[in-house]
Amino acid sequence: MTTLYEQLGGAPAVDAAVDIFYRKVLADERIERFFDAVDMQAQAAKQKAFLTMVFGGPNHYTGVDMRRAHARLVTQGLNDSHFDAVVENLAATLRELGVGDAQIAEVARIAESVRGDVLGR
Protein backbone atom coordinates (compact mmCIF):
# COMPACT_ATOMS: atom_id res chain seq x y z
CA MET A 1 0.00 0.00 0.00
CA THR A 2 1.43 3.37 -0.91
CA THR A 3 1.13 6.40 1.32
CA LEU A 4 -0.63 9.57 0.30
CA TYR A 5 2.78 11.25 0.00
CA GLU A 6 3.94 8.56 -2.45
CA GLN A 7 0.68 8.72 -4.41
CA LEU A 8 1.13 12.46 -4.80
CA GLY A 9 4.66 11.95 -6.13
CA GLY A 10 6.91 12.55 -3.11
CA ALA A 11 9.62 15.20 -2.98
CA PRO A 12 9.45 16.11 -6.70
CA ALA A 13 5.73 16.80 -6.28
CA VAL A 14 6.49 19.12 -3.39
CA ASP A 15 9.05 20.92 -5.55
CA ALA A 16 6.50 21.31 -8.33
CA ALA A 17 3.85 22.57 -5.95
CA VAL A 18 5.91 25.07 -3.97
CA ASP A 19 6.24 27.73 -6.67
CA ILE A 20 2.55 27.53 -7.55
CA PHE A 21 1.39 27.56 -3.95
CA TYR A 22 3.71 30.35 -2.81
CA ARG A 23 2.70 32.49 -5.81
CA LYS A 24 -0.98 32.04 -4.96
CA VAL A 25 -0.41 32.93 -1.33
CA LEU A 26 1.57 36.09 -2.17
CA ALA A 27 -1.17 37.15 -4.56
CA ASP A 28 -3.96 36.54 -2.04
CA GLU A 29 -4.63 39.81 -0.25
CA ARG A 30 -6.39 38.07 2.63
CA ILE A 31 -3.17 36.43 3.85
CA GLU A 32 -0.33 37.96 1.85
CA ARG A 33 0.78 40.14 4.79
CA PHE A 34 1.72 37.09 6.86
CA PHE A 35 4.13 36.04 4.14
CA ASP A 36 5.70 39.44 3.60
CA ALA A 37 8.99 37.64 3.64
CA VAL A 38 12.26 39.07 4.78
CA ASP A 39 13.88 36.36 2.71
CA MET A 40 11.95 34.68 -0.11
CA GLN A 41 14.26 31.69 -0.42
CA ALA A 42 13.91 30.97 3.30
CA GLN A 43 10.14 31.36 3.05
CA ALA A 44 10.08 28.96 0.13
CA ALA A 45 11.96 26.39 2.23
CA LYS A 46 9.27 26.74 4.91
CA GLN A 47 6.54 26.33 2.29
CA LYS A 48 8.23 23.09 1.31
CA ALA A 49 8.11 21.93 4.91
CA PHE A 50 4.43 22.88 5.01
CA LEU A 51 3.63 20.99 1.80
CA THR A 52 5.59 17.91 2.83
CA MET A 53 3.65 17.84 6.05
CA VAL A 54 0.17 18.17 4.55
CA PHE A 55 1.07 15.66 1.83
CA GLY A 56 1.60 13.23 4.69
CA GLY A 57 5.33 13.05 4.02
CA PRO A 58 8.23 12.52 6.41
CA ASN A 59 8.64 15.43 8.80
CA HIS A 60 9.72 15.95 12.37
CA TYR A 61 7.26 18.65 13.39
CA THR A 62 5.23 18.29 16.56
CA GLY A 63 2.14 20.19 17.65
CA VAL A 64 4.38 22.30 19.88
CA ASP A 65 6.55 23.18 16.86
CA MET A 66 3.42 24.26 14.96
CA ARG A 67 2.41 26.49 17.87
CA ARG A 68 5.86 28.01 18.05
CA ALA A 69 6.17 28.54 14.27
CA HIS A 70 2.90 30.47 14.12
CA ALA A 71 2.88 32.21 17.52
CA ARG A 72 4.18 35.46 16.02
CA LEU A 73 1.41 35.35 13.41
CA VAL A 74 -1.27 34.75 16.05
CA THR A 75 -0.19 37.97 17.77
CA GLN A 76 -0.65 39.64 14.37
CA GLY A 77 -4.26 38.47 14.23
CA LEU A 78 -4.06 35.04 12.54
CA ASN A 79 -7.51 33.43 12.74
CA ASP A 80 -9.81 30.83 11.18
CA SER A 81 -10.50 32.90 8.07
CA HIS A 82 -6.76 32.97 7.25
CA PHE A 83 -6.47 29.26 7.90
CA ASP A 84 -9.38 28.62 5.50
CA ALA A 85 -7.70 30.80 2.88
CA VAL A 86 -4.50 28.75 3.09
CA VAL A 87 -6.43 25.50 2.70
CA GLU A 88 -8.26 27.01 -0.29
CA ASN A 89 -4.98 27.96 -1.99
CA LEU A 90 -3.63 24.53 -1.23
CA ALA A 91 -6.60 22.83 -2.89
CA ALA A 92 -6.35 25.15 -5.92
CA THR A 93 -2.65 24.31 -6.25
CA LEU A 94 -3.34 20.58 -6.20
CA ARG A 95 -6.16 20.92 -8.72
CA GLU A 96 -3.81 22.81 -11.02
CA LEU A 97 -1.37 19.91 -10.74
CA GLY A 98 -4.09 17.46 -11.72
CA VAL A 99 -4.55 15.82 -8.32
CA GLY A 100 -7.88 14.06 -7.83
CA ASP A 101 -10.65 15.22 -5.48
CA ALA A 102 -10.29 12.31 -3.07
CA GLN A 103 -6.62 13.03 -2.49
CA ILE A 104 -7.27 16.76 -2.14
CA ALA A 105 -9.79 15.96 0.56
CA GLU A 106 -7.19 13.82 2.30
CA VAL A 107 -4.65 16.67 2.23
CA ALA A 108 -7.26 19.07 3.60
CA ARG A 109 -7.97 16.63 6.41
CA ILE A 110 -4.29 16.56 7.43
CA ALA A 111 -4.21 20.37 7.38
CA GLU A 112 -7.37 20.45 9.50
CA SER A 113 -5.71 18.26 12.13
CA VAL A 114 -3.28 21.04 13.07
CA ARG A 115 -5.76 23.94 13.00
CA GLY A 116 -5.80 24.26 16.80
CA ASP A 117 -2.02 24.26 17.08
CA VAL A 118 -1.50 26.71 14.22
CA LEU A 119 -4.05 29.12 15.70
CA GLY A 120 -2.62 28.66 19.19
CA ARG A 121 -5.76 27.27 20.81
Binding site: Y22, L26, M40
Partner: peptide
Protein backbone atom coordinates in the same frame (compact mmCIF):
# COMPACT_ATOMS: atom_id res chain seq x y z
CA UNK B 1 15.59 44.69 -4.80
CA UNK B 2 13.12 42.82 -2.57
CA UNK B 3 10.04 44.30 -4.24
CA UNK B 4 11.61 43.50 -7.62
CA UNK B 5 12.29 39.93 -6.52
CA UNK B 6 8.67 39.58 -5.53
CA UNK B 7 7.40 41.12 -8.80
CA UNK B 8 9.65 38.77 -10.75
CA UNK B 9 8.36 35.70 -8.95
CA UNK B 10 4.74 36.77 -9.28
CA UNK B 11 5.32 37.38 -13.00
CA UNK B 12 5.88 33.64 -13.28
CA UNK B 13 9.65 33.17 -13.02
CA UNK B 14 10.35 30.04 -10.92
CA UNK B 15 12.24 30.66 -7.66
CA UNK B 16 15.00 28.42 -8.96
CA UNK B 17 15.58 30.85 -11.84
CA UNK B 18 15.90 33.90 -9.60
CA UNK B 19 19.38 34.51 -8.22
CA UNK B 20 19.14 37.36 -5.75
Amino acid sequence: LRPVQRDTFLAGVPLGDIAA
